[in-house]
């Protein structure tokens, strides 16, 4: 760290020769993509069903439950999921991490989608129904296209949440399964190696890229506000 001698790409080369590390990077990506995908599907369904409640206070009650995982500290989510998986007899590893990531991403998707859904005028649906559209048509041809900016935003938020998570994964991982955050923690615990810096740079570039894509998509669709992670 303190012995700067010059620039080299040596560390990056070393990084790509390390199969284990490569596997961990790919694991992190798969977990992020897959969990974001599944969380988006469940989250959209959740938002639609919350939106279906016409009474204001039942909507709010549901939202309160929805937000529990967002405001909960990571430590509590990690610890309680560890108990949950142990009780359910689920092996710690890929699936436990995937399930946790899906679980803590769902409420974010709901929060990104719901405002779009609520701002949609109900007359739009009535009009479609009057013109003879089936319920399925209403969903796929009216509702989903309308809320799609929210869906995209939700997906990217879920993605970044997942890529960034350390605490929850730290609690529920095992059996040699590791994500980048956890690996960085254990690598760096043994003293900072330049290898980590190379890794960090790559990770940083990946996230920046996602930010740009996300920003571009939201700007294009005119969604206001910038989401961000914990």
């Amino acid at each position: 760290m303190n012995n700067f001698e010059g620039f080299t790409l040596e560390w990056y080369r070393e990084l790509f020769h390390d199969t284990r590390l490569l596997i961990i990077v790919l694991n992190t990506l798969v977990i992020a993509l897959l969990s974001a995908l599944i969380a988006t599907i469940i989250g959209v369904l959740g938002a639609i069903s919350i939106g279906n409640y016409k009474k204001r206070h039942s909507q709010n009650a549901l939202l309160a439950v929805n937000n529990v995982l967002i405001v909960s500290p990571d430590v509590i989510i990690g610890a309680s999921f560890l108990i949950l998986f142990t009780m359910a007899g689920i092996q710690l590893g890929f699936y436990s991490v995937l399930l946790s990531h899906i679980a803590f991403s769902i409420p974010i998707v709901v929060l990104m989608v719901l405002p779009k859904l609520l701002e949609m005028s109900p007359t739009l649906i009535d009009a479609a129904r009057d013109l003879g559209a089936s319920r399925w048509d209403v969903l796929t041809k009216v509702i989903l296209p309308y809320i799609s900016p929210g869906i995209v935003a939700g997906f990217f938020m879920a993605l970044t949440y997942s890529l960034d998570d350390f605490a929850v994964t730290f609690f529920v991982t095992g059996n040699g399964f590791s994500t980048l955050s956890v690996e960085i923690y254990s690598l760096a615990r043994r003293g900072i190696s330049l290898n980590i810096n190379a890794l960090s740079t790559i990770m940083f570039l990946v996230t920046i890229m996602m930010v740009i894509i996300y920003y571009y998509l939201t700007q294009r669709s005119g969604t206001k506000g910038v989401g961000f992670r914990r």
């Binding site: 970044t160 890529l163 960034d164 350390f166 980048l180 955050s181 960085i184 923690y185 760096a188 960090s200 990770m203 940083f204 996230t207 920046i208 996602m210 930010v211 920003y215 910038v226 961000f228 992670r229």
Partner: peptide, 15 residues
């Protein structure tokens, strides 16, 4: 500007 301020929050906490 807001985005620039928020970008650091996108870097992994551990890093």
């Amino acid at each position: 500007w807001l985005l620039l301020i928020i970008v650091p929050s996108w870097i992994n906490l551990l890093l």
